[in-house]
Design a protein around this nucleic acid. Sequence first.
DNA 1: TCATTATTGAAACAGTCGTACCATAAACTC
DNA 2: GAGTTTATGGTACGACTGTTTCAATAATGA
Lengths: 186, 186
Amino acid sequence: MGRPADPARRERTLAQATDYVLAHGLAGLSLRPLAAALDTSPRMLLYDFGSKQELVAAVLAEARRRGAVRMAEHLPPRTGSVRERLRGIWTWISADERAPFVRLFFEVHADGLVHPENYPDQGAAITDWFDTLGTTFRDVSSGPDDTVTPTLVMAVVRGLLFDLTTTGDRDRTDRALDRFAELLDR
Amino acid sequence: MGRPADPARRERTLAQATDYVLAHGLAGLSLRPLAAALDTSPRMLLYDFGSKQELVAAVLAEARRRGAVRMAEHLPPRTGSVRERLRGIWTWISADERAPFVRLFFEVHADGLVHPENYPDQGAAITDWFDTLGTTFRDVSSGPDDTVTPTLVMAVVRGLLFDLTTTGDRDRTDRALDRFAELLDR
DNA sequence: TCATTATTGAAACAGTCGTACCATAAACTC
DNA sequence: GAGTTTATGGTACGACTGTTTCAATAATGA
């Protein structure tokens, strides 16, 4: 008996909060402006999530989930040359539409360096990408459990993303990726 | 006439503040704890630097200056094979002693992504490294003004640093760098 | 001694932060 | 209607933020 719970509200709020964090970043996140933008109140945010920390954790999980879905949708299996696949990944991840994700990704990493205690799942986001990219680049790997090749590929991608987001120089970063693809292909 | 000014105090405070920021990070920096750790007062910090923003700018400039000095001290010129030089750079930059610098580096980058207006010298830290690394890897470049090779090298280094700081897996990142050096050497 | 300039302390100001408390309204079963 | 559970609004608390204000001290030259 009693008034029935409405679990949809929490999910709706979570989706909106994730949008907000993707748009405004994590660092300066504050309950009152967030609540105002979501047309709710700090009171309700705490009612639904318990604390700001748990809200942030839920938002990050949701963002990661979205990213994984988008990535799974996009990544074609292992068709084409190494260069084509690598370029496909780069074109997709470096597109402007992915910028909020990339930004949040770097932001979480930086925060994790200062407060490792808040991120017990050490590098889950990275090893996740490994698994999917490991299968994508299996044929250029030296063995079935070769972790070096995906490590290097991801390092190039992240490093060039770092460069691109800082300098905005798309030509140079694009060409650097092509150069790397050449090296891998030989 | 009147009491003479003491410019050494500001420099001393700046050096200590830089130590503090390198140790504690930029994100949560607050005047009162900083002043307490430096055995001074928020009043004096503002007296010497005008505002927190200017203090932070001064600290970042000082940190960058220190990093440049350390880098210039270390980098041997273009002796040895590409692989040896690349490994030398990686060994140096990924050493534990450099961790505070690397952390601050990533922190500033992430903050710059959210607040680009605070960093008008867009990517100065990155292009700085380019110039020095461009000369170091001149012989593997295709031409005198080849920007692609240093871009790729720095991307690998930064990407692997990202990985190492997140996962702590030194073996895997070391081997990934060796793999890259092999690719470059052929 | 005294004027002058540099330095420093203590306190307060106006604001924001996350969160807790208390009441009230809404939606349901009986 | 009562009883019960969920959902809200309003408000205030204590702690923190960067910064300002006012006063006091210290060190110099005249």
